[in-house]
Design a binder for these strands. Structure first.
Length: 129
DNA sequence: CTTCTGACGAAAT
DNA sequence: CATTTCGCCAGAA
C-alpha cells in the first residue's frame, strides 16, 4: 500500500465537513479535490491520523456499503450510533442520509465556483429529487 | 521499464 | 440484488 499523497491534507479537511448522521462516498469526496480519485481517498481514510477528529467513518463506497476489511463491523456500528440506517442487504439509503456537500465557505476557500459545484453534486449517487 | 496491488466505480450480465 | 469485467492511478518491488 502507498504511503503519503500530497492531497491527503485537503481530503481530511473536506471530510471534516461531513456532519454526524450523514455519509459520503469516496468518489464524492474525490470529485471536489483536484488530483484525487476515489481510490486515493480510500488510501487517505486508511491512513487517517488518529485523535484529530476526522470522521473517516462517514465515507463509504458508492454502493452505500462498508468496504472495510477487518473493522467492518466496528465501522458500521459507529455509523449506526450516529443514526445511519442499513438495509437488510447492508446498504444505506442515499436518498435519506447522503451528505449534500461542503459549506460555501469551504468551496470559496478552495476556489470552487458554486455553479461548478452544483454540476458535480448532480452526478453524486442517489440523486435526491 | 514491467507487474502487481488496492477502505474505488460504473456498466454489463 | 450479487458478480464479473474493465478502467483507473500512484507507489512498491
Amino acid at each position: 500500500m502507498p504511503k503519503n499523497y500530497s492531497c491527503f491534507p485537503e481530503i481530511y479537511d473536506l471530510v471534516q465537513e461531513i456532519p454526524a448522521g450523514e455519509v459520503a462516498s469516496y468518489g464524492m469526496v474525490a470529485s471536489l479535490i483536484t488530483g484525487a480519485t476515489a481510490r486515493i481517498v480510500g488510501y487517505a481514510m486508511a491512513a487517517t491520523p488518529s485523535g484529530k477528529d476526522i470522521p473517516w467513518q462517514r465515507v463509504i463506497n458508492a454502493a452505500g456499503k462498508i468496504s472495510d476489511r477487518d473493522g467492518a463491523a466496528r465501522h458500521r456500528k459507529y455509523l449506526e450510533q450516529e443514526g445511519i440506517i442499513f438495509s437488510k442487504s447492508g446498504a444505506v439509503s442515499w436518498a435519506t442520509c447522503r451528505w449534500q456537500g461542503p459549506s460555501e465557505k469551504w468551496l470559496d476557500a478552495h476556489k470552487i465556483d458554486f455553479m461548478d459545484f452544483l454540476e458535480i453534486q448532480a452526478n453524486w449517487p442517489g440523486k435526491p429529487k
